[in-house]
Design a protein around this nucleic acid. Structure first.
Lengths: 234, 234
DNA sequence: TGGGACAAGATTGTATCCAATTCTGTCGGT
DNA sequence: ACCGACAGAATTGGATACAATCTTGTCCCA
């Protein structure tokens, strides 16, 4: 599962931790990631942190502004559409082939993911639920045994997490577990065609649950966040 | 075209140069990229080079071996299949939407690419022809106006270049320009469906022109290269 | 002659240092 | 009171120095 990467061990670990924090919505889009602060948190030198931030920047999870530091990315509306466009090309066919290949162990694993997702939901830990929901998709790519595509999907799902943080319409119920259950059923029956359809509509639903009209909803800088939350200033 | 990246300017430039060299088959798979050597070549410090190599490693163009340096990647047979699998998911639909969106300027640009490709071919500069042939695909993704997908395709094409270096069967004529001409015709007629079909079969042809049975054809290390080229060792 | 141990050299990994740029707060002018 | 200029502080960018690891060559012994 964890294929030991021969590249920078620590920077990999730090990038993974930050990535997970973003995924769980514990780091909001726009948050500044000061090199020294991160270095202090993980007790390494800035050199390592810089490598980690570069890696995250390459995955579009953070944006590096020259001489100004690293910030958790804030996908634009356009980027949001592009991410879901890419997912629409990759995930349905991948789900199909995963459904056709899935063995009992794979299905058990997926079921465990869904259960954990439920548990997190019940604990009102929406962040963790979102993270697990992402893992579900990544797991499917892994089952399809396509590491290259899985890497792409991982990146897209991480970015989706940011998009959800910015654009999710609270009004609409997201209710991912329903779609995931349906997908699991298709997997159990090795019904690739149905898995492909379900994944397609799942992605459509997800996109539909976003409000991609004008405004990037979330707090992007502390200043702006306060300005917005307190109504007009003064 | 060149949207000024706010991240490391020099490291971006160096990564691009190395990437192009790989693309043009001027750097063979397995070649070691010594930090100091690269640093000397571009007259910068190792710091910059390390950033560039990390970037290339993220794109799977080089492999970073801990404490042992950076080497031009040598995709396995499995990776080769995966890359073309991913291309098969992304490129046809992208070609379709590009064909439907392409304006006269886009078509002129594509035609210029094909012409340059011909010229390179005529000059017997197979490396440059291959590079331009890759640019043709990337240009299509750009026309489709999907930056995210375009980035994925760019990476896949770069890796394809390595795959071709390792697995291309010289016997079979590659004759990319023929396929590219046909695609261009579909673009001129704004025939998205046809463009999608043509791209699919183009990719199938490309994959078919490779010899993905056992052996990774190219020279991977100097030692092994000599061992192979001189027959049995003394 | 072949193989293993050891030492010197070379290369990468990380930390630290200094320069360059940006940010912040203050001052002075209008 | 508002705006711009300027100085100091803080932060990032890049180079260098040192430590850790690997490679290479030699020597000794079986």
């Amino acid at each position: 599962m964890i294929h030991s990467v021969d590249a920078d061990i620590d920077s990999h670990r730090i990038a993974a931790r930050i990535s997970q924090a973003i995924h769980e919505h514990r780091l909001a889009p726009g948050t500044k990631l000061s090199e020294e602060e991160v270095a202090g948190t993980f007790d390494v030198s800035r050199t390592i942190v810089r490598a980690a931030l570069q890696r995250l920047a390459h995955d579009r999870l953070v944006e590096l502004k020259r001489n100004r530091g690293a910030y958790v990315a804030q996908p634009t509306v356009r980027e949001a559409r592009e991410v879901f466009e890419a997912r629409a090309l990759l995930e349905p066919r991948t789900a199909r082939s995963a459904a056709e290949r899935a063995g009992p162990a794979d299905i058990a694993l997926l079921r465990r993911h869904i259960d954990e997702e439920h548990a997190a939901m019940h604990d009102d830990d929406a962040g963790r639920a979102l993270y697990l929901s992402g893992l579900f998709h990544i797991e499917i790519a892994r089952i399809a045994d396509q590491a290259t595509i899985a890497a792409f999907i991982s990146q897209l799902i991480a970015r989706s997490s940011l998009i959800i943080a910015l654009y999710w319409e609270r009004r609409r119920a997201l209710c991912e577990s329903h779609s995931h259950h349906a997908l699991l059923a298709a997997f159990e029956q090795k019904d690739g065609a149905r898995a492909e359809e379900l994944m397609t509509s799942h992605l459509v639903d997800l996109l539909a649950s976003l409000d991609l009209r004008r405004p990037p909803a979330g707090a992007r800088s502390l200043k702006e966040a306060l300005a917005l939350s307190t109504g007009r200033l003064r």
